[in-house]
């Protein structure tokens, strides 16, 4: 019950801050457009379709993580987190409410990024593939929101979030198979890549954009991606401090 109240409050807040809302939907679209310009300059033999949707997924991953982490840290610095707890909201409701509230935004982001990529890059996928792509990006967005909540518990102020950005995003770019095939990486680097949720999302995307794909070969990756949601949920509820 309280979970929904918190989720509704977050949606109300997003509504109250329309500029922010617009920016968080338009920003990824602009990045995708730049990507298109970049890829136009590539020689025609580069398989850009292998990169477009995964990079879109990365953008959603990064933005959802960042927005959620910063807003939750803001609650701490402004004292509203403390006030929520003393008013009687529980940690689990706060985490649930945040996830639910941001999911609305993340869903729109995921859809916008996916459709813009399909359109700009003239990707001709079947309806089922598009649906699956959406599910993957959306699941990744949920993971990102949970990751944002988890990371925010280590930050006393907004500035503390920034060191985590390269720590999470750079390995995600280089070690998860997004740009470089993980099989060509040294063992330790491939291992780090396998610890990152984006790796599994990229695996699934690479599989389902093949003309002949088998859904069953993605089951494990899907399971792991969903597993991340639960793992981060538990970690976040363990680290979200109520007292000092």
């Amino acid at each position: 019950m309280n979970t929904f109240i918190i989720a509704r409050r977050i949606l109300n807040q997003l509504q109250g801050d329309k500029k922010y809302l617009a920016l968080s939907i338009i920003a990824p679209l602009i990045i995708i457009y730049f990507l298109k310009l970049l890829f136009n300059a590539f020689p025609p033999n580069v398989p850009i379709t292998n990169f477009t949707i995964p990079i879109g997924a990365l953008i959603v991953h990064f933005l959802s993580f960042l927005l959620c982490a910063i807003l939750l840290v803001q609650e701490r610095t402004r004292g509203t987190l403390e006030r929520m707890l003393i008013s009687g909201y529980r940690r689990t409701s706060i985490i649930g409410g945040y996830t639910l509230g941001y999911l609305g935004l993340a869903t729109i982001q995921a859809a916008a990024v996916l459709f813009e990529s399909l359109w700009l890059f003239n990707l001709d996928y079947s309806g089922q593939t598009i649906f699956l792509l959406f599910i993957v990006i959306w699941l990744l967005a949920v993971v990102s929101v949970m990751l944002g909540i988890f990371i925010s518990t280590f930050a006393q102020n907004e500035g503390h979030v920034f060191p985590f950005i390269p720590l999470i995003i750079l390995p995600s770019v280089f070690l998860t198979g997004l740009i470089i095939d993980t099989n060509t990486l040294p063992g330790w680097a491939a291992f780090i890549g396998k610890c990152l949720p984006l790796h599994y999302a990229v695996n699934i995307i690479h599989e389902i954009i093949k003309p002949t794909y088998s859904l069953s070969s993605t089951y494990l990756d899907f399971t792991i991606l969903i597993g991340y949601i639960f793992l981060l949920w538990i970690l976040a509820s363990l680290t979200l401090k109520e007292t000092e």
Binding site: N2, I5, D17, G79, T80, R83, M84, Y89
Partner: peptide
């Protein structure tokens, strides 16, 4: 310790709803 981007009443309702 209030939400700047909510109205006064919404703030009060939110903390009361807990």
């Amino acid at each position: 310790a209030l939400y700047d981007d909510l109205s006064a009443k919404k703030n009060i309702l939110f903390f009361g709803a807990a």
